[in-house]
Simulated assay, not measured.
Amino acid sequence: MRQAQTVLQVATRGHGIHDLTATIDDWLADQDIATGLATLFLQHTSASLTVQENADPDVLRDLQDWLAALAPEDPRRYRHGAEGPDDMPAHLRSVLTQTSLAIPVSGGRMALGTWQAVYLLEHRRQPHRRRLVVHLAGT
């Protein structure tokens, strides 16, 4: 068994959903590991990861709207707001999604379904530089 690991820097433009699929697959292709498991871990508590549909952009818009309805930016609702009114809602949205994913690798690429992609969900309004640890183990 072989292993490889990297930290990918992801620059976000603020609140939104960012497709990471090609970036991750490009790194995987350079590792000379055809079959295994990729673990993705986002080192932040106000952004998250998801595997979601990549065909109809309305799915992503609806997901954003749903998260905003569940965790609205209303400072009267929360104790924590040290970094602004989007701070605590960002943490709540992250709890509802995930900060890590485990994805099988086949043929040196993520074994995603036809209509799937890996996305980073930026829950803060301001642009950020997010760190994504990618660990690959396999043969």
Rank of each mutant, 00 (worst) to 15 (best):
S46H: 00
W66R: 14
H18I: 13
D32F: 12
A90D: 03
A82D: 09
R61Y: 02
E83P: 07
I33Y: 02
S94C: 10
A38S: 06
G36K: 07
T21E: 12
L96M: 11
G84E: 03
A47K: 06
D56N: 15
V10P: 03
N54H: 13
L60Y: 11
A22H: 06
L96V: 03
T35F: 12
L96Y: 06
H15M: 15
A90Q: 05
H44A: 08
T45L: 11
A69W: 12
H80M: 13
P85S: 02
Q31A: 08
I33R: 08
T23V: 10
V59S: 05
T12P: 00
Y78W: 02
L37D: 01
A34E: 11
R61P: 00
A29R: 11
W66G: 10
P89E: 09
D26L: 11
A55F: 10
L67C: 09
F41A: 12
P75I: 04
L70P: 05
R77P: 05
D19R: 01
S100E: 14
A55G: 14
T21I: 11
T50F: 08
G16C: 03
V95Y: 04
H44R: 07
I17A: 14
D65E: 13
P72Y: 09
A71S: 10
S94Q: 05
E73W: 00
L67T: 00
A90V: 01
Q9E: 15
A11R: 09
D86L: 10
T97Y: 13
L96R: 01
L92G: 01
P75H: 00
D30F: 00
T12D: 07
T99I: 15
A68P: 05
T99S: 15
S94I: 03
D30K: 03
D74Q: 02
T39R: 15
Q9T: 12
Q9C: 13
A38R: 01
A38M: 08
R77D: 02
T23K: 12
